[in-house]
Design a protein around this nucleic acid. Sequence first.
DNA 1: CAAAGTTAATCAATCGATTAATTAATTAAC
DNA 2: GTTAATTAATTAATCGATTGATTAACTTTG
Lengths: 212, 212
Amino acid sequence: MVTKKEDKKEHIIDTAERVFGEFGYEGASTRLLASEAGVNMAMLNYYFGSKDGLLRAVLERRISSMRAVLEDIYQQPITNWQKLERMIEAYLNRVLTNNCFHRLVQRELSLAQRHDTADLISEHVFLNLKVMRQVIVDGMADGTFREVDAEMTIASVIGTKYYLLNSTDILSRLLNADMQDKVQLEEVIKPRVKKHLLSLLKSYLLKQNEEK
Amino acid sequence: MVTKKEDKKEHIIDTAERVFGEFGYEGASTRLLASEAGVNMAMLNYYFGSKDGLLRAVLERRISSMRAVLEDIYQQPITNWQKLERMIEAYLNRVLTNNCFHRLVQRELSLAQRHDTADLISEHVFLNLKVMRQVIVDGMADGTFREVDAEMTIASVIGTKYYLLNSTDILSRLLNADMQDKVQLEEVIKPRVKKHLLSLLKSYLLKQNEEK
DNA sequence: CAAAGTTAATCAATCGATTAATTAATTAAC
DNA sequence: GTTAATTAATTAATCGATTGATTAACTTTG
Protein backbone atom coordinates (compact mmCIF):
# COMPACT_ATOMS: atom_id res chain seq x y z
CA MET A 1 0.00 0.00 0.00
CA VAL A 2 1.71 3.13 -1.21
CA THR A 3 -0.78 5.31 0.56
CA LYS A 4 0.43 4.32 3.98
CA LYS A 5 4.05 5.12 3.20
CA GLU A 6 3.11 8.41 1.60
CA ASP A 7 0.91 9.23 4.56
CA LYS A 8 3.85 8.68 6.85
CA LYS A 9 6.10 10.84 4.75
CA GLU A 10 3.46 13.54 4.70
CA HIS A 11 3.14 13.29 8.45
CA ILE A 12 6.88 13.69 8.90
CA ILE A 13 6.92 16.68 6.58
CA ASP A 14 3.98 18.21 8.44
CA THR A 15 5.78 17.85 11.73
CA ALA A 16 9.09 19.05 10.34
CA GLU A 17 7.41 22.14 8.95
CA ARG A 18 6.21 23.02 12.42
CA VAL A 19 9.40 22.11 14.27
CA PHE A 20 11.67 23.89 11.79
CA GLY A 21 9.35 26.87 12.07
CA GLU A 22 9.54 26.92 15.84
CA PHE A 23 13.20 26.11 16.44
CA GLY A 24 14.88 27.16 13.22
CA TYR A 25 16.87 24.82 11.00
CA GLU A 26 19.96 24.65 13.19
CA GLY A 27 17.93 24.59 16.38
CA ALA A 28 15.82 21.62 15.34
CA SER A 29 17.85 18.45 15.88
CA THR A 30 17.13 15.29 13.96
CA ARG A 31 16.28 13.58 17.23
CA LEU A 32 13.71 16.23 18.05
CA LEU A 33 12.27 16.12 14.55
CA ALA A 34 11.97 12.35 14.77
CA SER A 35 10.48 12.17 18.23
CA GLU A 36 7.95 14.90 17.47
CA ALA A 37 6.87 12.94 14.44
CA GLY A 38 6.82 9.76 16.51
CA VAL A 39 9.26 7.90 14.30
CA ASN A 40 12.74 6.48 14.62
CA MET A 41 15.52 8.89 13.85
CA ALA A 42 16.88 6.67 11.09
CA MET A 43 13.61 6.98 9.23
CA LEU A 44 14.39 10.58 8.38
CA ASN A 45 17.46 9.53 6.46
CA TYR A 46 15.67 6.55 5.03
CA TYR A 47 12.96 8.73 3.56
CA PHE A 48 14.74 12.01 2.90
CA GLY A 49 18.43 11.14 2.76
CA SER A 50 19.50 13.83 5.20
CA LYS A 51 18.28 16.64 7.39
CA ASP A 52 18.79 18.99 4.49
CA GLY A 53 16.72 16.68 2.31
CA LEU A 54 13.91 16.90 4.82
CA LEU A 55 14.06 20.67 4.73
CA ARG A 56 13.96 20.58 0.97
CA ALA A 57 10.91 18.30 1.08
CA VAL A 58 9.18 20.75 3.41
CA LEU A 59 9.89 23.65 1.11
CA GLU A 60 9.10 22.03 -2.20
CA ARG A 61 5.67 20.93 -1.08
CA ARG A 62 4.32 24.44 -0.80
CA ILE A 63 6.66 26.52 -2.84
CA SER A 64 5.25 26.24 -6.31
CA SER A 65 1.52 26.38 -5.65
CA MET A 66 1.50 30.04 -4.62
CA ARG A 67 2.67 31.30 -7.97
CA ALA A 68 0.05 29.27 -9.78
CA VAL A 69 -2.60 31.09 -7.77
CA LEU A 70 -1.10 34.51 -8.51
CA GLU A 71 -0.67 33.77 -12.20
CA ASP A 72 -4.29 32.66 -12.37
CA ILE A 73 -5.49 35.90 -10.83
CA TYR A 74 -3.30 37.88 -13.19
CA GLN A 75 -4.95 36.27 -16.21
CA GLN A 76 -8.48 37.02 -15.10
CA PRO A 77 -10.52 39.64 -17.03
CA ILE A 78 -10.84 42.09 -14.16
CA THR A 79 -9.43 45.51 -13.32
CA ASN A 80 -5.92 45.82 -11.99
CA TRP A 81 -7.25 47.00 -8.68
CA GLN A 82 -9.40 43.90 -8.42
CA LYS A 83 -6.38 41.77 -9.26
CA LEU A 84 -4.41 43.43 -6.51
CA GLU A 85 -7.27 42.94 -4.10
CA ARG A 86 -7.47 39.24 -4.82
CA MET A 87 -3.74 38.71 -4.74
CA ILE A 88 -3.46 40.33 -1.35
CA GLU A 89 -6.30 38.21 -0.08
CA ALA A 90 -4.75 35.04 -1.48
CA TYR A 91 -1.34 35.86 -0.06
CA LEU A 92 -2.82 36.71 3.30
CA ASN A 93 -4.72 33.46 3.51
CA ARG A 94 -1.63 31.48 2.67
CA VAL A 95 0.77 33.26 4.92
CA LEU A 96 -1.36 33.54 8.01
CA THR A 97 -2.70 30.01 7.77
CA ASN A 98 0.56 28.18 7.07
CA ASN A 99 2.41 30.50 9.36
CA CYS A 100 5.04 28.02 10.52
CA PHE A 101 6.12 27.45 6.96
CA HIS A 102 6.40 31.10 6.04
CA ARG A 103 8.25 31.84 9.22
CA LEU A 104 10.73 29.14 8.30
CA VAL A 105 11.15 30.44 4.77
CA GLN A 106 11.64 33.99 5.88
CA ARG A 107 14.16 33.04 8.52
CA GLU A 108 16.27 30.95 6.19
CA LEU A 109 16.25 33.72 3.58
CA SER A 110 17.47 36.24 6.12
CA LEU A 111 20.71 34.35 6.72
CA ALA A 112 23.64 35.70 4.79
CA GLN A 113 25.24 32.28 4.94
CA ARG A 114 22.59 30.11 3.45
CA HIS A 115 21.84 26.60 2.40
CA ASP A 116 21.44 25.63 -1.20
CA THR A 117 17.77 25.38 -0.45
CA ALA A 118 17.64 29.12 0.08
CA ASP A 119 18.33 29.73 -3.58
CA LEU A 120 15.51 27.38 -4.41
CA ILE A 121 13.04 29.50 -2.47
CA SER A 122 14.59 32.76 -3.51
CA GLU A 123 13.84 32.18 -7.16
CA HIS A 124 10.21 31.27 -6.57
CA VAL A 125 9.49 34.16 -4.24
CA PHE A 126 11.09 36.55 -6.68
CA LEU A 127 8.77 35.41 -9.44
CA ASN A 128 5.78 35.86 -7.15
CA LEU A 129 6.81 39.42 -6.43
CA LYS A 130 7.24 40.13 -10.12
CA VAL A 131 3.68 39.12 -10.88
CA MET A 132 2.35 41.44 -8.20
CA ARG A 133 4.57 44.25 -9.39
CA GLN A 134 3.28 43.81 -12.90
CA VAL A 135 -0.27 44.49 -11.75
CA ILE A 136 0.79 47.82 -10.32
CA VAL A 137 2.78 48.66 -13.43
CA ASP A 138 -0.22 47.77 -15.60
CA GLY A 139 -2.47 49.90 -13.43
CA MET A 140 -0.17 52.90 -13.84
CA ALA A 141 -0.02 52.31 -17.57
CA ASP A 142 -3.77 52.31 -18.05
CA GLY A 143 -4.10 55.41 -15.91
CA THR A 144 -6.12 53.98 -13.03
CA PHE A 145 -3.19 54.05 -10.60
CA ARG A 146 -1.11 57.00 -9.53
CA GLU A 147 2.57 57.02 -10.43
CA VAL A 148 4.22 55.28 -7.49
CA ASP A 149 7.31 53.25 -6.66
CA ALA A 150 5.90 49.87 -7.65
CA GLU A 151 8.69 47.79 -6.13
CA MET A 152 8.58 49.59 -2.79
CA THR A 153 4.82 49.34 -2.69
CA ILE A 154 5.10 45.59 -3.05
CA ALA A 155 7.71 45.57 -0.32
CA SER A 156 5.29 47.37 1.97
CA VAL A 157 2.50 44.92 1.32
CA ILE A 158 4.60 41.80 1.77
CA GLY A 159 6.55 43.42 4.59
CA THR A 160 3.40 44.10 6.57
CA LYS A 161 2.39 40.48 6.41
CA TYR A 162 5.82 39.13 7.25
CA TYR A 163 6.20 41.47 10.14
CA LEU A 164 2.89 40.36 11.55
CA LEU A 165 4.01 36.80 11.12
CA ASN A 166 7.47 37.03 12.57
CA SER A 167 6.97 39.38 15.47
CA THR A 168 3.89 37.63 16.74
CA ASP A 169 4.78 38.17 20.35
CA ILE A 170 5.23 41.92 20.17
CA LEU A 171 2.34 42.51 17.82
CA SER A 172 0.00 40.44 19.94
CA ARG A 173 0.59 42.96 22.68
CA LEU A 174 0.29 45.95 20.38
CA LEU A 175 -2.88 44.68 18.73
CA ASN A 176 -4.39 43.39 21.98
CA ALA A 177 -5.04 39.98 20.48
CA ASP A 178 -3.40 36.60 20.82
CA MET A 179 -1.93 35.81 17.43
CA GLN A 180 -1.00 32.32 18.57
CA ASP A 181 -4.68 31.56 18.86
CA LYS A 182 -5.85 30.23 15.52
CA VAL A 183 -9.42 31.41 15.98
CA GLN A 184 -8.46 34.99 16.81
CA LEU A 185 -5.94 35.00 14.00
CA GLU A 186 -8.54 33.87 11.51
CA GLU A 187 -11.51 35.91 12.69
CA VAL A 188 -9.93 39.05 14.11
CA ILE A 189 -6.43 39.59 12.78
CA LYS A 190 -6.84 38.43 9.21
CA PRO A 191 -9.85 40.65 8.38
CA ARG A 192 -8.15 43.52 10.13
CA VAL A 193 -4.96 43.22 8.09
CA LYS A 194 -6.94 42.78 4.94
CA LYS A 195 -8.99 45.91 5.59
CA HIS A 196 -5.91 47.88 6.50
CA LEU A 197 -3.87 46.90 3.46
CA LEU A 198 -6.68 47.52 1.03
CA SER A 199 -7.53 50.87 2.56
CA LEU A 200 -3.87 51.85 2.60
CA LEU A 201 -3.35 50.90 -1.04
CA LYS A 202 -6.62 52.43 -2.11
CA SER A 203 -5.70 55.87 -0.86
CA TYR A 204 -2.20 55.50 -2.30
CA LEU A 205 -2.88 53.98 -5.69
CA LEU A 206 -6.38 54.93 -6.80
CA LYS A 207 -6.82 58.38 -8.23
CA GLN A 208 -10.51 58.72 -7.49
CA ASN A 209 -10.49 58.01 -3.82
CA GLU A 210 -12.46 61.06 -2.78
CA GLU A 211 -15.90 59.95 -3.88
CA LYS A 212 -17.18 56.78 -2.29
CA MET B 1 45.17 50.16 31.03
CA VAL B 2 41.42 49.61 31.05
CA THR B 3 41.01 50.98 27.54
CA LYS B 4 42.82 48.11 25.89
CA LYS B 5 40.68 45.47 27.54
CA GLU B 6 37.49 47.35 26.75
CA ASP B 7 38.64 47.80 23.17
CA LYS B 8 39.09 44.08 22.90
CA LYS B 9 35.66 43.38 24.34
CA GLU B 10 34.17 45.89 21.94
CA HIS B 11 35.96 44.24 19.06
CA ILE B 12 34.58 40.84 20.04
CA ILE B 13 31.07 42.25 20.33
CA ASP B 14 31.44 43.94 16.94
CA THR B 15 32.47 40.69 15.35
CA ALA B 16 29.82 38.66 17.15
CA GLU B 17 27.15 41.08 15.96
CA ARG B 18 28.15 40.42 12.39
CA VAL B 19 28.64 36.66 12.73
CA PHE B 20 25.40 36.15 14.65
CA GLY B 21 23.69 38.24 12.02
CA GLU B 22 25.07 36.18 9.19
CA PHE B 23 24.84 32.67 10.62
CA GLY B 24 22.13 32.95 13.25
CA TYR B 25 22.61 32.19 16.92
CA GLU B 26 22.63 28.40 16.59
CA GLY B 27 24.57 28.53 13.35
CA ALA B 28 27.41 30.60 14.77
CA SER B 29 29.69 28.31 16.77
CA THR B 30 31.89 29.63 19.54
CA ARG B 31 34.90 28.50 17.57
CA LEU B 32 33.79 30.53 14.57
CA LEU B 33 32.98 33.55 16.70
CA ALA B 34 36.40 33.36 18.32
CA SER B 35 38.40 32.84 15.15
CA GLU B 36 36.57 35.65 13.33
CA ALA B 37 37.41 37.94 16.21
CA GLY B 38 40.99 36.66 16.22
CA VAL B 39 40.92 35.54 19.84
CA ASN B 40 41.15 32.27 21.70
CA MET B 41 37.86 30.48 22.20
CA ALA B 42 38.21 30.51 25.96
CA MET B 43 38.30 34.30 25.92
CA LEU B 44 34.61 34.40 25.04
CA ASN B 45 33.75 32.64 28.28
CA TYR B 46 36.34 34.64 30.16
CA TYR B 47 34.78 37.92 29.09
CA PHE B 48 31.11 37.04 28.67
CA GLY B 49 30.60 33.87 30.72
CA SER B 50 28.92 31.96 27.94
CA LYS B 51 27.76 32.10 24.36
CA ASP B 52 24.43 33.37 25.58
CA GLY B 53 26.21 36.06 27.58
CA LEU B 54 27.94 37.19 24.40
CA LEU B 55 24.60 37.42 22.62
CA ARG B 56 23.22 39.43 25.51
CA ALA B 57 26.20 41.78 25.32
CA VAL B 58 25.58 42.28 21.61
CA LEU B 59 21.94 43.09 22.20
CA GLU B 60 22.28 45.33 25.22
CA ARG B 61 24.75 47.58 23.52
CA ARG B 62 22.27 48.88 20.98
CA ILE B 63 18.92 48.08 22.42
CA SER B 64 18.17 51.02 24.65
CA SER B 65 19.48 53.92 22.59
CA MET B 66 16.78 53.73 19.93
CA ARG B 67 13.96 54.49 22.30
CA ALA B 68 15.80 57.48 23.68
CA VAL B 69 15.90 58.90 20.17
CA LEU B 70 12.20 58.27 19.59
CA GLU B 71 11.19 59.70 22.96
CA ASP B 72 13.22 62.78 22.22
CA ILE B 73 11.45 63.31 18.91
CA TYR B 74 8.10 62.75 20.59
CA GLN B 75 8.76 65.58 23.06
CA GLN B 76 9.69 68.12 20.41
CA PRO B 77 7.30 71.03 19.75
CA ILE B 78 6.46 70.07 16.18
CA THR B 79 3.44 68.71 14.35
CA ASN B 80 2.60 65.03 14.58
CA TRP B 81 3.35 64.62 10.92
CA GLN B 82 6.80 66.07 11.44
CA LYS B 83 7.33 63.74 14.37
CA LEU B 84 6.39 60.79 12.21
CA GLU B 85 8.69 61.99 9.48
CA ARG B 86 11.64 62.26 11.81
CA MET B 87 10.95 58.96 13.53
CA ILE B 88 10.85 57.13 10.24
CA GLU B 89 14.07 58.78 9.20
CA ALA B 90 15.75 57.91 12.50
CA TYR B 91 14.54 54.31 12.36
CA LEU B 92 15.62 53.97 8.78
CA ASN B 93 19.09 55.23 9.48
CA ARG B 94 19.51 52.83 12.37
CA VAL B 95 18.10 49.78 10.72
CA LEU B 96 19.78 50.06 7.35
CA THR B 97 23.14 51.00 8.80
CA ASN B 98 23.37 48.38 11.55
CA ASN B 99 21.64 45.83 9.40
CA CYS B 100 23.39 42.80 10.81
CA PHE B 101 22.15 43.65 14.25
CA HIS B 102 18.56 44.18 13.26
CA ARG B 103 18.56 41.01 11.24
CA LEU B 104 19.77 39.16 14.30
CA VAL B 105 17.09 40.70 16.49
CA GLN B 106 14.31 39.89 14.08
CA ARG B 107 15.43 36.34 13.59
CA GLU B 108 15.63 35.60 17.29
CA LEU B 109 12.22 37.15 17.84
CA SER B 110 10.68 35.02 15.14
CA LEU B 111 11.52 31.78 16.93
CA ALA B 112 8.65 30.32 18.89
CA GLN B 113 11.18 28.63 21.17
CA ARG B 114 13.25 31.52 22.34
CA HIS B 115 16.11 32.41 24.61
CA ASP B 116 15.62 34.52 27.69
CA THR B 117 17.30 37.26 25.73
CA ALA B 118 14.33 37.39 23.38
CA ASP B 119 12.12 38.72 26.16
CA LEU B 120 14.70 41.38 26.80
CA ILE B 121 14.45 42.65 23.25
CA SER B 122 10.74 42.11 23.00
CA GLU B 123 10.00 44.58 25.76
CA HIS B 124 12.20 47.30 24.28
CA VAL B 125 10.88 46.93 20.75
CA PHE B 126 7.32 47.00 22.05
CA LEU B 127 7.92 50.29 23.81
CA ASN B 128 9.40 51.74 20.61
CA LEU B 129 6.31 50.77 18.68
CA LYS B 130 4.08 52.31 21.31
CA VAL B 131 5.76 55.67 20.97
CA MET B 132 5.28 55.64 17.21
CA ARG B 133 1.68 54.58 17.57
CA GLN B 134 1.05 57.42 19.98
CA VAL B 135 2.06 59.94 17.34
CA ILE B 136 -0.59 58.58 14.99
CA VAL B 137 -3.18 58.51 17.74
CA ASP B 138 -2.33 62.10 18.64
CA GLY B 139 -2.58 63.12 15.01
CA MET B 140 -6.03 61.58 14.71
CA ALA B 141 -7.10 63.28 17.93
CA ASP B 142 -6.11 66.75 16.80
CA GLY B 143 -7.80 66.21 13.45
CA THR B 144 -4.78 66.40 11.17
CA PHE B 145 -4.77 62.65 10.45
CA ARG B 146 -7.52 60.55 8.96
CA GLU B 147 -9.07 57.85 11.12
CA VAL B 148 -6.92 54.81 10.43
CA ASP B 149 -5.84 51.58 12.08
CA ALA B 150 -2.87 53.01 13.95
CA GLU B 151 -1.35 49.67 14.96
CA MET B 152 -1.54 48.25 11.47
CA THR B 153 -0.10 51.42 10.00
CA ILE B 154 2.90 51.05 12.28
CA ALA B 155 3.15 47.42 11.26
CA SER B 156 3.31 48.48 7.63
CA VAL B 157 6.05 51.01 8.25
CA ILE B 158 8.22 48.67 10.29
CA GLY B 159 7.27 45.76 8.06
CA THR B 160 8.55 47.56 4.98
CA LYS B 161 11.92 48.05 6.58
CA TYR B 162 11.88 44.56 7.99
CA TYR B 163 11.29 43.06 4.59
CA LEU B 164 13.95 45.15 2.93
CA LEU B 165 16.40 44.03 5.57
CA ASN B 166 15.59 40.34 5.68
CA SER B 167 15.01 39.54 2.05
CA THR B 168 18.00 41.42 0.79
CA ASP B 169 18.76 38.90 -1.88
CA ILE B 170 15.33 38.89 -3.50
CA LEU B 171 14.82 42.61 -3.19
CA SER B 172 18.19 43.37 -4.69
CA ARG B 173 16.94 41.67 -7.82
CA LEU B 174 13.56 43.35 -7.71
CA LEU B 175 14.99 46.80 -7.10
CA ASN B 176 17.88 46.35 -9.49
CA ALA B 177 20.40 47.38 -6.89
CA ASP B 178 22.90 45.51 -4.77
CA MET B 179 21.75 45.91 -1.20
CA GLN B 180 24.90 44.24 0.09
CA ASP B 181 26.84 47.20 -1.24
CA LYS B 182 27.03 49.77 1.51
CA VAL B 183 27.34 52.69 -0.86
CA GLN B 184 24.30 51.76 -2.94
CA LEU B 185 22.34 51.02 0.22
CA GLU B 186 23.14 54.42 1.63
CA GLU B 187 22.83 56.53 -1.50
CA VAL B 188 20.19 54.73 -3.53
CA ILE B 189 18.06 52.44 -1.38
CA LYS B 190 17.78 54.54 1.76
CA PRO B 191 16.50 57.70 0.04
CA ARG B 192 14.19 55.59 -2.05
CA VAL B 193 12.62 53.84 0.94
CA LYS B 194 12.35 57.14 2.75
CA LYS B 195 10.59 58.79 -0.14
CA HIS B 196 8.27 55.84 -0.59
CA LEU B 197 7.25 55.55 3.05
CA LEU B 198 6.63 59.25 3.46
CA SER B 199 4.65 59.47 0.27
CA LEU B 200 2.64 56.39 1.21
CA LEU B 201 1.84 57.70 4.67
CA LYS B 202 1.14 61.17 3.40
CA SER B 203 -1.60 60.02 1.09
CA TYR B 204 -2.98 57.73 3.75
CA LEU B 205 -2.82 59.89 6.84
CA LEU B 206 -2.98 63.52 5.83
CA LYS B 207 -6.40 64.90 5.00
CA GLN B 208 -5.23 67.73 2.76
CA ASN B 209 -3.12 65.79 0.32
CA GLU B 210 -4.70 67.19 -2.80
CA GLU B 211 -3.13 70.64 -2.74
CA LYS B 212 0.59 70.62 -2.87
C1' DC C 1 11.25 -15.82 0.71
C1' DA C 2 12.58 -11.55 -1.13
C1' DA C 3 11.80 -6.49 -0.47
C1' DA C 4 10.52 -2.75 2.22
C1' DG C 5 10.14 -0.83 6.50
C1' DT C 6 11.79 -0.21 11.20
C1' DT C 7 14.66 -0.54 15.18
C1' DA C 8 18.53 0.10 18.75
C1' DA C 9 23.23 0.76 18.89
C1' DT C 10 26.96 3.24 17.47
C1' DC C 11 29.91 6.21 14.38
C1' DA C 12 33.04 10.30 13.98
C1' DA C 13 32.51 15.17 14.25
C1' DT C 14 31.31 19.12 16.47
C1' DC C 15 29.10 21.57 20.09
C1' DG C 16 29.76 24.88 24.37
C1' DA C 17 32.45 24.93 28.28
C1' DT C 18 36.36 24.12 31.45
C1' DT C 19 40.82 22.98 32.86
C1' DA C 20 45.64 23.64 34.15
C1' DA C 21 49.65 25.79 32.60
C1' DT C 22 51.86 29.98 30.79
C1' DT C 23 52.58 34.76 29.77
C1' DA C 24 51.70 39.68 30.52
C1' DA C 25 50.50 43.41 33.40
C1' DT C 26 49.91 45.58 37.81
C1' DT C 27 51.04 46.33 42.54
C1' DA C 28 53.96 46.14 46.68
C1' DA C 29 58.27 46.07 49.02
C1' DC C 30 62.60 47.91 49.67
C1' DG D 1 64.10 52.39 40.26
C1' DT D 2 64.61 47.56 40.65
C1' DT D 3 62.81 43.43 41.97
C1' DA D 4 59.62 40.29 44.01
C1' DA D 5 54.66 39.20 44.69
C1' DT D 6 50.11 39.31 42.96
C1' DT D 7 46.69 39.65 39.77
C1' DA D 8 44.89 39.60 35.10
C1' DA D 9 45.00 37.90 30.50
C1' DT D 10 45.78 34.24 27.29
C1' DT D 11 46.81 29.76 25.60
C1' DA D 12 46.45 24.68 24.19
C1' DA D 13 44.37 20.64 25.55
C1' DT D 14 40.49 18.37 26.88
C1' DC D 15 35.87 17.63 29.06
C1' DG D 16 31.20 15.38 28.51
C1' DA D 17 27.21 16.15 25.73
C1' DT D 18 25.00 16.42 21.49
C1' DT D 19 25.06 16.73 16.62
C1' DG D 20 23.77 14.32 11.85
C1' DA D 21 24.47 10.02 9.96
C1' DT D 22 25.18 4.98 9.46
C1' DT D 23 25.25 0.28 10.57
C1' DA D 24 23.55 -4.37 11.16
C1' DA D 25 19.96 -6.87 13.06
C1' DC D 26 15.05 -7.40 13.22
C1' DT D 27 10.00 -7.13 11.71
C1' DT D 28 6.55 -6.52 8.58
C1' DT D 29 4.68 -6.77 4.09
C1' DG D 30 3.53 -8.51 -0.43
